[in-house]
Design a protein around this nucleic acid. Structure first.
Lengths: 340, 340
DNA sequence: GCATCTGCCCAAAGCGCTTTGATCGGTAGT
DNA sequence: ACTACCGATCAAAGCGCTTTGGGCAGATGC
């Protein structure tokens, strides 16, 4: 059943039927109801491709998802997607998900935009000086950046968590507890939030005349495996840290395994603060020693980004609106006074 | 840049350019190269909507993803999607992901198909007598079922794990170890794999003249929270089980917390076997007491389903091919002789 | 009574592609 | 020398919608 057939069935023109269906005012009320009823009964659904071709609108937002095994099975991504999906469902949008290996993202974005299959783009896993922002600025299509990109000049719309402040606060807490040798199990190198978190730690340390030693830090993918290995390496050093910051509760999970294996007691022999993305699977309060965390919900970010991106697509949000969320420092039992 | 402009630029007709681009044989070799070169230089990308409208093919596969918080933030889904994404990327397909609340799936499917935005459908989280299969059979579009649906007559193409056999084998292992009171922390009620797993346990027990008591079983979403609560309830009973089967390592995670909290030692005071979907985040060998599991990779299933669904779309696979994977029983330390 | 609205509806153009059915110069067959 | 055929190209139709630019009554204003 297509529009033409439906129009014939009703003895109306395609124009009128189309207008009735799309809520244009210049249709007689009785006619509209007749059309709506017939559409319902015949199960008519407009052909999406034709609609797109005619309107230029796709009703969907595009995201290039990292397809490298390490990144993408990523629970963080899934949790974010969950929030975004919730909002998209509410506003009748869907996604076009394009899985691509790292390095192919730019081409994929170009394709996605040029082919007109989406009318908005979500950008994540930003790197420093990320070329994708410049790319998007040159393409005329609404987009929203999750995170930021150090080194990019000019304004662009984003939503980010203040990672620097979060890790500065966390480090300050550790300093107040008397810790001086502080380690950092950070996210992947080159990624913006990784850089800012490191900067936060360094800022807090610098204020006390301390520095973050290179051997006290690890840049890895945020899996428990790397958390385990990273912590193990830190502990095997001649002067191991007395406190460690983790970029994710997932890293913390592995890190704590290493702590236990080394026979250390969390919160007494060694302190740990993790960044908590509020993953339902890994609640810091459920760890055998509840974790001190900096908290910011990834799912909530997904919802908010959905709102804003769709608003931008509909022209409700314009300009490079920038939004920076504060993470909340929540003290539990994994932090304690530095051992002497 | 569109086809018309490109054709004008080259002094050719749209027909020839289109054919050159799409690899039709009746184009002069020199002409084809000229076209390809120009397309490259001008950054020409065919408009996807127009292409779809003209061909009727969408180059994408559709999945309705559960948008209810419980299900969807679901790490199992993410892990599966990861595999599917890998294969889709390889074969140049993308997804149209339509987030929907439970109960709205059927409408969403209808819409997805009728609107022509996808040319194949992936079906998951099958229930007993799932109406979606009947629906898909009536819609003329390739589809593939992940799992099966008890009670549906007739053939339909699927990929499933032999859940019944897996849980039968696991139960037999426990019986051999002398366990007689066996509990089951199962997945959500009504879901096909849940039903089959239960059936597997019951079959093994029945062979010994035993039965699965209702109070020894829980049907819940597969989160660690429910694992914790479920195990806690089982242990608080007058005659708690000496061994428990878990439908997922995620459930096991919570369950083990409850075991520890009760002061019991895993593998000695109580035995546990979990089904392992090979989630990178939850490796059974990394648990403080390594877990005995029935293993079947969800990611591998994703890859395979991608292959088969795309094959079906391209007409390479026809008929209701049915594929049943065996899960592997791997014995580690969480199982031991029944305490007397 | 004539011009002007207004409310409702329609025919047709156009979105950017693929594909069908020619066309046309040139080579081969007899 | 005439037909047949072939390789390479093109014009135009069509996919199913939206939207522009009327048109045609009947109501309204003066």
């Amino acid at each position: 059943m297509n529009l033409k057939q439906l129009a014939e069935l009703l003895g109306l023109s395609q124009t009128t039927v189309s207008r009735a269906l799309n809520g244009y005012p210049e249709v007689n009320r009785a006619t509209r109801e007749r059309v709506l009823k017939a559409a319902e009964e015949t199960g008519y659904r407009p052909n999406a491709a034709a609609q797109r071709l005619a309107t230029g609108r796709a009703g969907s937002i595009g995201l290039v998802m990292p397809a490298a095994p390490d990144y993408y099975a990523d629970i963080h991504f899934a949790e974010f997607l969950s929030g975004l999906g919730e909002e998209a469902a509410r506003r009748d949008f869907h996604f076009v998900l394009m899985p691509k290996k790292p390095g192919e993202e730019e081409d994929a974005l170009r394709w996605l935009v040029a082919s007109g299959s989406v009318d908005g783009i979500y950008l994540a896993y930003m790197q420093a000086n990320d070329p994708r922002i410049t790319l998007m600025q040159s393409l005329r299509i609404p987009y929203l950046v999750h995170g930021r990109s150090i080194g990019i000049e000019g304004d662009y719309p984003y939503l980010d968590v203040d990672n620097e402040a979060a890790f500065r606060d966390a480090t300050n807490l550790l300093l107040e507890l008397g810790h001086r040798r502080i380690g950092l199990l950070n996210g992947p190198g080159g990624v913006d939030f990784t850089i800012r978190r490191k900067a936060g730690v360094e800022a807090a340390l610098a204020a006390k005349g301390l520095a973050l030693e290179a051997e006290q830090m690890r840049h890895t993918a945020m899996t428990d495996e790397f958390g385990f290995r990273g912590m193990k390496e830190l502990l095997e050093q001649p002067a191991p840290p007395t406190a460690v910051l983790c970029a994710s509760t997932v890293l913390a999970l592995g890190a704590i395994r290493a702590v236990n294996q080394a026979g250390l007691r969390l919160g007494r022999d060694i302190s740990l603060i993790a960044h908590d993305d509020v993953l339902p699977l890994l609640k810091p309060e459920d760890f055998s020693v509840p974790l001190t965390t900096t908290r910011s919900s990834l799912r909530a970010a997904g919802v908010r980004i959905g709102q804003r991106l769709i608003d931008r697509i509909k022209g409700l949000e314009t300009g490079p609106e920038q939004e920076l969320w504060k993470a909340e420092l929540i003290v539990r039992n994994s932090t304690g006074a530095a051992p002497r």
